[in-house]
Design a protein around this nucleic acid. Structure first.
Length: 950
RNA sequence: GCCCCAGUAGCCCAACGGCAGAGGCAGGCGACUUAAAAUCGCCACCGGUGCGGGUUCGAAUCCCGUCUGGGGCACCA
């Protein structure tokens, strides 16, 4: 397509090579002029002049600088935000738009482990490549605000935020995080006691520290975590797929008790759910977050089992009369205490697991469960379990309930124990059926109900015990739940409660390429926060970048982080207030998500060395704006664009950190992203031959609906773009063949930004032809001078122009870039039709067209603007305004329908009233012909149509 | 199994409940050319909006059911 017929083409035809020349030149100009520098109200990015009150903060999701380079799908969102940002900048707003790099992570480390090249080198090379690829697209970013999470000046503040979290606790009374110092004061004043009831003054210094550590928002716990031996690190719950493997690398994951940093995100569970209501996000993402947090209201119920008590969690305490057994998770701590030495008389053989006594049966069952991977537990939903030999007593009816151990009860949720209510829970029904347990209904199903467990609504039955003063019979569900909870609480058998699926966030990784913890350990092995002036804690040089990895199935292996082998770095002598002492550094690094939790804040104040973000700058760019967004505005980035894949992880973590910083008074916004927009993906066709091998997609030809490669038919599939699928198209190719403006226009015109669609290189030429025609309407291809006259445009021209202006305005503002593009083509087609064959085009048509084109195709627009004799850039406007006088016509054509079908058309003056329109319609001969006397009804929609009902 | 989203011309896609077609690709005809490509101009095909019902004067649009495709969740008591 990059045609070598330059000798024939006129010297100033808009070809790919001319586009390339124009584009490079304007990119250089923008850079040297600082065209996209957005002033801050405070600090070194302030200009001294007051900043406009009207601002816009647009942000793209942080890219990871991959070594593979970009394909045409990657910049879709970046171009979308750029068009939006440029449009608003032209209307006079102060627009913050930039792009940084989320550069810590596994690929650079794995590459380092293979080649010995330092991850920093790999990362920096990749960033350089990506910057070059993006620069040629002409994105209007403020380069001063770009950074990488791997910059020590950036992760210094990531560590600083970690320390803020470390030095806080969650006050459940005030429902906010507070500085740990305020907790100390409460202990000192005696307002709080240690868990064992001792006063602060009775505790040793070490005990005091341990006590405080148990309150911190980030704490070290010795709890079951997800250990992936094949990856050599632990991972967060969120990073484990449904089939029990690591999202990264797809390795098996095992539960293992390890000492690990954990963030108390669960303290924020309610606020993270409730504040979703304040956000302009899609319901889909909100629902995913709600489901992930998984709040369910229910109650704890305590069942006496001998001298022990089994506490269960249930969302259906109303069904308690239907309980016929209890189940504990295999890992439950009470199992050892409840298991008996011999089977009770008459124990069914199905309950024994074939063992001679309960102790053996439980031990064997537990061992079998431990051997099962999560995948096995997942796939095999047959109910298994064994009887412990013990019975518990149902407090509402005194019934004896056999206590089982079964792996369908999960240890991490609720109390790890459930009451078996087969009548109203299908899982319990399945278990009861498998073990021959009694099934009793306590809710009457409808007469025609043919299922097993009945989980629907209905009147309660079999649920009264007059002696205890309980009578739920006949009552609806909500009433029954409220009543039984009140009874349980009054009688000490339980209490209403709320459960969450969300668990605390495992925050340490045994890797190299991540942020080190700003923590050292003293001789008591207790963590000590480093003072702020010792930040950043930089990564040491090491011999081996990779952690030790193990056989992916070796569940008994232990993590061995790379930093633990940097012994010179690990042991330090510091004076932290009580004289020089030796300390040991923490050898974990933070997970990948840390850096992306707060980058929006750093964008707002990127070079501040005194603070992570000056409060004045934070308030200006991110603060709540009640006047624009209403009284409940939480603040945050005005528009955040990215893919759906971060719906839970990144967006939940970032919201959590934002709320902590808000509670501690560091920021004025309590949500990071006011508006979230999920873009679609550009996908591509791939082709396989008869052996199932991929063939290069650009060599495939189509004929009569079939596809051929070298004469042989190939099979088409639809999906991702990727090297292995041999269907990658790069922005570099598109820029070389057509220019960046053509590429940008095409990407935006393919469809709405939120839709996924297939890439079609052959369609790109349409966008190129449009720009070529437009160029020719403005520029003489022979001389390169403009061919614009000062002659006035016609009435008809002006109508076309102002209709376009009005439509394009609205389309840009609502991110309908595809229809904005269509309207520009339409206007240009009109101009071409009227003026292409004449000497010149009226300036009053050309200038607005060029300005309206600028957000999508900024380089050609700048060039045309300058050829038209304008000084400077059009990046800051003006943007044309539509004159309403040209939006109305003198006459209107009304289609006239009879019974909803168009039968005729009439033309009436646009100011004609309904009656006149009606009369004109009925007078039309074609309509009169359809009518048999007076019509029953005539509907006149002003400006639209007439519908006659005979 | 459950929950979202989407189905309009050969393809990508437009249409406040009001004329199904804005725009692009592909296609046809013509101009330029020795010719082809590229460029330019013109043209229109064909679909009654996945399917079946309903509401309405009027439905691509709203409601119910159903099919297909894409995404998410999945023993969470």
């Amino acid at each position: 397509m990059s045609e070598d017929r330059t000798e024939e083409a006129p010297a100033y035809r808009y070809t790919a090579s001319l586009a390339g020349e124009i584009e490079t030149r304007w990119q250089d100009t923008w850079e040297s002029e600082g065209t996209f520098h957005a002033p801050n109200p405070e600090g070194s990015l302030a200009t001294g002049a007051p900043v406009p009150e009207d601002k816009l903060f647009v942000q793209d999701m942080f890219p990871y600088p991959s070594g593979a380079g970009l394909h045409v799908g990657h910049p879709l969102g970046y171009i979308g935000t750029d068009v939006f940002a440029r449009y608003h900048r032209m209307t006079g707003r102060n627009v913050l738009h930039t792009l940084g790099y989320d550069a810590f992570g596994l690929p650079a480390e794995q590459y380092a482990a293979q080649t010995g090249q330092h991850p920093r080198t790999t990362t920096e090379n990749n960033i350089t490549t990506m910057r070059r690829q993006l620069r040629q697209l002409g994105l209007g970013h403020d380069p001063r605000r770009s950074f990488a999470t791997t910059d020590p000046e950036y992760y210094r503040w990531t560590q600083w935020i970690f320390l803020q979290i470390f030095n806080s606790y969650y006050d459940t009374e005030q429902d906010k995080a507070r500085p740990i110092g305020e907790l100390i004061e409460q202990f000192e004043r005696g307002e709080r006691l240690a868990e064992d009831g001792r006063a602060w003054s009775e505790l040793s210094a070490t005990e005091r520290r341990a006590l405080l550590n148990s309150y911190r928002l980030v704490y070290i716990s010795d709890a079951p975590v997800n250990w992936a031996p094949g990856l050599g690190t632990v991972v967060a719950n969120e990073e484990v797929t449904a089939d029990g493997r690591s999202e990264r690398g797809n390795f098996p994951v095992f539960r293992k008790n390890l000492r690990q940093w954990t963030m108390r995100i669960t303290a924020y569970a309610d606020r993270l759910i409730d504040d979703l209501a304040l956000l302009d996000w899609s319901d889909q993402v909100k629902t995913m977050q709600r489901n992930w947090i998984g709040r369910s209201h229910g109650s704890h119920v305590r069942f006496a089992a001998g001298d022990r008590t089994v506490e269960v969690f249930t969302t259906r305490p109303d069904t308690i009369f239907g309980t016929t057994y209890l189940v504990l998770a295999p890992e439950h701590e009470l199992v050892d205490e409840l298991v008996t030495d011999a089977w009770p008389e008459g124990t069914a053989s199905a309950w024994t697991g074939g063992a001679a006594d309960p102790r053996t049966a439980v031990a064997e069952y537990r061992a079998a469960t431990a051997r099962k991977s999560d995948l096995d537990r997942q796939e095999n939903k047959d109910k298994t379990g064994v009887f412990t030999g013990s019975y518990a007593r149902n407090p509402v009816n005194g019934r004896q309930l056999p206590v089982f151990v079964a792996d369908y009860v999960l240890t991490g949720y609720g109390t790890g124990a459930v009451m078996g209510v087969p009548g109203e829970d299908q899982r319990d029904w399945d278990f009861a059926t498998a073990f021959g347990l009694e099934i009793m209904r306590t809710i009457a199903p409808p007469e025609d109900f043919e299922g097993e467990a009945y989980t629907g609504e209905g009147p309660m039955i079999n649920s009264a015990n007059p002696e205890l003063g309980i009578d739920l019979d006949g009552k609806p569900k909500d009433e029954a739940i409220a009543e039984i909870i009140a009874w349980l609480e009054a009688n000490g058998h339980g209490n209403g409660t709320v459960q969450y699926k969300l668990r605390d966030w495992l925050f340490a990784r045994q890797r190299y390429w991540g942020e080190p913890f700003p923590i050292v350990y003293d001789e008591n092995d207790l963590p000590v926060a480093l003072p702020e002036d010792q930040l950043p804690v930089e990564l040491p040089e090491v011999e081996e970048y990779a952690p030790r990895t193990f056989d992916p199935e070796d569940a008994d292996s232990e993590p061995s982080p790379p930093l633990s082998r940097a012994t010179d770095w690990m042991y330090v002598t510091l004076d932290l207030g009580d004289g020089p002492k030796q300390y040991r550094r923490d050898t974990n690094v933070m997970p990948n998500w840390a850096g992306s939790c707060w980058y929006h804040l750093r964008y707002a104040d990127p070079v501040n060395s005194e603070a992570f973000c000056d409060p004045v700058n934070e308030r200006y760019w991110l603060g709540p704006r009640v006047n624009e967004h209403g009284a409940n505005d939480p603040g945050g980035v005005d528009l955040y664009i990215g893919g759906m894949e971060h719906a839970v992880l990144h967006l939940l973590y970032a919201r959590f950190w934002q709320k902590v910083l808000y509670d501690l008074g560091h920021v004025s916004a309590h949500e990071p992203y006011r508006r979230l927009f999920n873009q679609g993906y550009i996908q591509a066709y791939a082709y396989t031959d008869s052996r199932g091998q991929y063939v290069p997609a650009d060599e495939v030809t189509e004929s009569e609906g079939k596809f051929f490669h070298n004469g042989a038919e190939v099979r088409r599939e639809y999906g991702k773009m990727g090297k292995s699928l041999k269907n990658v198209v790069t922005p570099d190719e598109m820029c070389a063949d057509y220019g960046a403006d053509t590429f940008r226009f095409y990407e935006m015109s393919m469809g709405p930004l939120e839709a996924s669609r297939p890439w079609a290189t052959k369609d790109v030429v349409g966008a190129h032809r449009f720009l070529q025609r437009l160029w020719r309407n403005v520029v003489d291809e022979q001389s390169g001078k403009h061919r614009v006259s000062e002659e006035p445009a016609t009435e008809e021209d002006r109508k076309a122009l102002h209709r376009a202006i009005a439509g394009v305005h609205e389309d840009y503002a609502n991110m309908r870039f595809n229809t904005a593009g269509a309207k520009l083509i339409e206007l240009n087609n009109h101009i071409t039709k009227v003026y292409a064959k004449t000497e010149s085009t009226p300036r009053e048509l050309v200038e607005p067209l060029v300005l309206m084109l600028a957000p999508v195709c900024p380089h050609i627009a700048e060039e045309l603007w300058s050829i038209l004799g304008k000084d400077g850039s059009l990046a800051h406007g003006p943007f044309p305004a539509a004159d309403p006088a040209y939006l109305v016509d003198e006459t209107v054509e009304y289609p006239v329908q009879v019974r909803g079908k168009v039968r005729s058309r009439i033309i009436v003056p646009s100011e004609a009233g309904e009656d006149e329109v009606r009369a004109a319609a009925l007078a039309d001969e074609k309509i009169a012909a359809c009518l048999d006397g007076e019509p029953r009804k005539v509907i006149v929609v002003p400006g639209r149509l007439v519908n006659v009902v005979p």
